[in-house]
Design a protein around this nucleic acid. Structure first.
Length: 115
DNA sequence: GTCAGGGCGATGC
DNA sequence: AGCATCGCCCTGA
């Protein structure tokens, strides 16, 4: 059952603060949790979770084990990976106003949300 | 300014 | 203790 680790909980909590039309990066998350060098593990942890694209609504279910992991992209401007397929991730991001070209974010700086 | 590829160390599980 | 990692940074053209 929901055996969430403390790092996971932190990530979930932070992701919920991300506006609908913004995205964040693994590194930013890592720093937000107090471990700026932990960006690698952040990605892995995200991959170990279900990545539902519906949890963007906090009022929907408040399920800590669900969060918009597709909102997390690389610091380079690339979208990165996605358990459901980067194709879906791209679509979801574009739906939120993110412009992606060749797996790369164009208005990356504009949509980047910093905690 | 853009794009590409490679290499690296650190952390948590 | 060991393993694996949805990444980051750097350089060059």
């Amino acid at each position: 059952m929901a055996s969430l680790t403390s790092l996971q909980l932190k990530i979930y909590n932070l992701l919920r603060k991300i506006p609908k039309d913004k995205v964040t990066t693994y590194k930013t998350l890592a720093k937000a949790v107090g471990k700026p060098k932990n960006w690698r593990e952040i990605g892995k942890i995200l991959s170990q979770n279900p990545c539902p694209d519906q949890s963007r609504d906090p009022d929907k279910g408040r399920d800590p084990s669900k969060f918009p992991c597709y909102k997390v992209v690389r610091s380079d401007g690339k979208i990165g990976g996605y358990s459901g397929g980067i194709n879906k991730k791209k679509k979801l991001l574009q739906k939120d106003g993110i412009i992606i070209i060749n797996n790369k974010i164009r208005n990356f700086k504009k949509v980047l949300f910093k905690f």
